[in-house]
Simulated assay, not measured.
Amino acid sequence: MTEDRDDLSRWATWRELHAQPEIWRGWAEEFAAHEVRDWIASLDAPEVWFCGAGTSAYIGDIVAAGLEGQGTRMRSVPTTDLVSRPHAYLPGPRPLVVNFGRSGGSPETLGALDALDVLAPEAPRLNVTCNDKGALARRKATGECGVVVLPEATHDQGFAMTSSFSTMLLTALTLFDADPPEDALPDLAEALEALLPRYAAVAAEAEPPGRIVFLGTGPMAFAAREAALKVMELTAGRVAALWDSTLGFRHGPKSFVDDSTRIVLFASRDPQASNYEADLIDELSGQYPHAGLASFGPGGDLDPKLDLPDVWQTPLAVALAQVLGVVWSDAIGLDVDDPFKGRGTLSRVVAGVTLYPVKRP
């Protein structure tokens, strides 16, 4: 790439997001997915709940939206909801609870495990984590419990989740897609390698904007949610970021846009969805002619040219925001690996949460 990348490589976050292609290739060879899929099938669970906090919760949003209608009901149940109102969810159907966690030891992760122990001890669990020393990897459960520990390289040391997010997401898709595409991870790795220099060029072409909006349909809408979070986290809120669905955006959130706002569309391969996306882009181009418009996806400015369903391409879309966030954070003069350094307001693993005991009904 360019000299800019050589300079940015002093940041762990930049190195970690660029490591994703090689991580995905290695994981495709190492992960015994068929064994875990057989175990999941043997459980015959009526529902699958995807649980996590923040970015880990958004993994569940993406998977549930992308795989809906395949058979077994899939729900995204953030641990931030489960911990604060456990009796609203448990006891209930005997779901398979899939817990995602980079560190595997955040307060909400521990609180969710506590709630399951008390209210649904026999519900099977599948813990997917990047840290072999965390609670998700080591804590015992009363019922059946599977554990998938990702390669050590996914345990990001930077504040923002990059390879941890994408590899946990691709692991979940590999396990729960009824018909996972063959060679998806190597194909995605090759596509991302080609896209990363182009993403860096997009990020460097202008000063960090005051505002940015990410839009999408279905799983791409939730990829937009993670993208907005990445930019806002890495720039410590200096770049205000919003996300919405393509059709939902007109219902008030469009008021966020002014002539200095960057707008990014994560385009869908679905013909019906693409009609609405094209209409919105035409509308925004006319109403905000000076706003920067960019699109990822089929026929867009940044087209990976992959014959894969939308949900499988979400890591490529989010990687654009990872690059934007790092480049802009560095340009602002922040510590990219710890944008809130010296403030004590946010930390890599969430702190400051008091857990309260869960009582049986």
Results as ranks from 00 to 15, higher is better:
residue 309 P to Y: 07
residue 309 P to E: 08
residue 310 D to Q: 02
residue 310 D to V: 06
residue 311 V to L: 09
residue 311 V to P: 04
residue 311 V to Q: 05
residue 311 V to K: 05
residue 311 V to Y: 09
residue 312 W to H: 15
residue 313 Q to S: 12
residue 314 T to N: 06
residue 314 T to D: 13
residue 314 T to E: 11
residue 314 T to R: 05
residue 315 P to Y: 14
residue 316 L to T: 09
residue 316 L to Q: 08
residue 317 A to E: 14
residue 317 A to Q: 15
residue 317 A to S: 15
residue 318 V to L: 10
residue 318 V to A: 09
residue 319 A to P: 03
residue 319 A to L: 04
residue 319 A to S: 15
residue 319 A to Y: 06
residue 320 L to F: 10
residue 321 A to S: 14
residue 321 A to Q: 10
residue 322 Q to H: 15
residue 322 Q to K: 10
residue 323 V to N: 02
residue 323 V to L: 04
residue 323 V to P: 01
residue 323 V to K: 03
residue 324 L to H: 13
residue 324 L to E: 12
residue 324 L to D: 11
residue 324 L to K: 10
residue 325 G to W: 11
residue 325 G to P: 06
residue 325 G to D: 10
residue 326 V to G: 07
residue 327 V to D: 10
residue 327 V to G: 04
residue 327 V to I: 03
residue 328 W to P: 04
residue 328 W to K: 08
residue 328 W to C: 09
residue 328 W to N: 10
residue 328 W to L: 09
residue 328 W to F: 10
residue 329 S to N: 08
residue 329 S to E: 13
residue 330 D to E: 11
residue 330 D to V: 01
residue 330 D to T: 01
residue 331 A to Q: 15
residue 331 A to T: 13
residue 331 A to S: 14
residue 332 I to R: 14
residue 332 I to P: 07
residue 332 I to Y: 15
residue 332 I to M: 15
residue 332 I to S: 13
residue 332 I to G: 12
residue 333 G to R: 07
residue 333 G to S: 14
residue 333 G to N: 13
residue 333 G to V: 08
residue 333 G to F: 11
residue 333 G to W: 12
residue 334 L to W: 14
residue 334 L to I: 15
residue 335 D to R: 07
residue 335 D to E: 13
residue 336 V to A: 12
residue 336 V to Q: 01
residue 336 V to R: 03
residue 336 V to P: 05
residue 337 D to F: 04
residue 337 D to C: 10
residue 337 D to K: 05
residue 338 D to V: 03
residue 338 D to M: 01
residue 338 D to G: 05
residue 338 D to Q: 06
residue 338 D to Y: 04
residue 338 D to R: 02
residue 339 P to Y: 10
residue 339 P to G: 12
residue 339 P to L: 06
residue 340 F to N: 12
residue 340 F to Y: 15
residue 340 F to V: 05
residue 340 F to R: 07
residue 341 K to V: 00
residue 341 K to C: 01
residue 342 G to P: 00
residue 342 G to K: 07
residue 342 G to F: 04
residue 343 R to V: 01
residue 343 R to W: 11
residue 343 R to M: 06
residue 344 G to A: 11
residue 344 G to P: 03
residue 344 G to K: 10
residue 345 T to N: 09
residue 345 T to I: 08
residue 345 T to V: 15
residue 346 L to H: 11
residue 346 L to C: 04
residue 346 L to N: 14
residue 347 S to K: 08
residue 347 S to Y: 09
residue 347 S to Q: 10
residue 347 S to M: 01
residue 348 R to I: 07
residue 348 R to N: 12
residue 349 V to E: 06
residue 349 V to Q: 03
residue 349 V to C: 04
residue 349 V to T: 05
residue 350 V to Q: 01
residue 351 A to Q: 12
residue 351 A to C: 00
residue 351 A to F: 01
residue 352 G to N: 05
residue 353 V to H: 09
residue 353 V to S: 02
residue 353 V to G: 02
residue 353 V to C: 06
residue 354 T to P: 01
residue 354 T to D: 14
residue 354 T to K: 06
residue 355 L to Y: 03
residue 355 L to I: 08
residue 355 L to T: 11
residue 356 Y to S: 04
residue 356 Y to I: 00
residue 356 Y to H: 02
residue 357 P to C: 00
residue 357 P to G: 00
residue 357 P to E: 00
residue 357 P to Q: 01
